[in-house]
């Protein structure tokens, strides 16, 4: 019996993206640049996160016309973002045939209490996380892939570093615990108990965890791989840089060869100006996208 939308099929799709770079694009032309540079997938958006910050107001799912245009332009997988808890945006994107949905804090949440029940969908989902509790709750709801939240649209890697270190330290702690300690840890983390048992058995998270939210240079991408990310999302970092083609290519190469420092030096030469960054301390609490999600 042929079965679609199973856990294995949805998580497996993310496994195929490992070691790769997923790039935010806003039209067919950018999607083609990303594909030519070696992106493993593109995220079709109306605006990249730094422009969402500038524009203010309510950020929603992209115009389906843009998503359709990007899907028609490339043969690599196409992802798109739905608002947290917005069942209909997610169903619309699924009906359009996007390959992965990001239930994303970059958009303005539609529900301030509940996330989507992602296990109900045939299309797989990726969600952001800052710690193991958040990661495990999203997996519990059916997310097939995780990413750090970082702080989107800032070009500042500090938050993504904080989040990947935190999640991985907490995974190591769980793996090192005895079985009888897991229930209390589950309570403290706000994480499903069965998932902690699975993490302990596997010695790692049961789904792929990418870095996102602040990657702006090839060295940033390599740093996240060094810290244990399975791959990298680059949002504003490519098409807000001076030379998107070169940045895109260099970030792909640095992600594959993240321990080859001579190579990273070579590909980082004369790349031009990266996106202008934001110091996180300058952002008020209500401007921090990472605070969204529960």
């Amino acid at each position: 019996m042929k079965q679609t939308g199973t856990e294995l099929v949805k998580r497996g799709m993310a496994e195929m993206q490992k070691g790769g770079v997923i790039m935010d694009v806003i039209n067919a032309e950018q999607a083609k640049i990303a594909e030519a540079a070696g992106a493993v997938a593109v995220m079709a958006l109306e605006r990249v996160p730094s422009d969402i910050r500038k524009a203010g107001g309510v950020a929603r799912m992209a115009d389906p016309r843009i998503v359709e245009e990007v899907m028609g332009a490339v043969t690599i997988p196409v992802m798109a973002k739905a608002r947290i808890g917005h069942i209909v945006e997610a169903r619309v994107l699924e009906a359009m045939g996007v390959d992965y949905i990001d239930e994303s804090e970059v958009l303005t949440p539609a529900d301030e209490e509940y996330h989507l029940l992602k296990s109900e969908y045939t299309v797989p989902f990726v969600c952001g996380c800052r710690d193991l509790g958040e990661a495990a709750r999203r997996i519990g709801e059916g997310a097939s892939m995780l990413r750090t939240k970082g702080e989107p649209g800032t070009g500042n890697i500090v938050e993504a570093v904080r989040h990947i270190r935190k999640v991985n330290a907490q995974v190591r702690k769980v793996v090192g615990m005895t079985e009888d300690e897991l229930m209390t840890e589950a309570k403290l983390l706000g994480a499903p108990f069965e998932l902690l048992r699975e993490i302990k058995r596997l010695g790692r998270l049961p789904v792929v965890n990418f870095a996102a939210g602040g990657v702006a240079t090839p060295a940033d991408a390599a740093l996240m791989m060094e810290l244990g990310a399975d791959g990298v999302f680059v949002g504003s970092g490519i098409f807000k840089s001076e030379n998107p083609e070169k940045f895109a290519r260099a970030i792909v190469e640095a992600t594959t060869h993240y321990k080859d420092y001579k190579l990273i030096a070579e590909i980082s030469k004369e790349l031009g100006v990266p996106m202008k960054g934001i110091d996180i301390a300058q952002l008020g609490h209500n401007e921090r996208m990472q605070e969204r999600g529960w």
Partner: peptide, 27 residues
């Protein structure tokens, strides 16, 4: 086979290899 929503898993009998082999097809 189409896009990701059409990805699937199935059991296959492959004479030279064995019966009931789980096969995951992703795009």
């Amino acid at each position: 086979y189409g896009r990701q929503v059409n990805s699937f898993e199935v059991q296959l009998d492959i004479p030279k290899v064995g019966v009931g082999i789980p096969a995951v097809f992703i795009r």
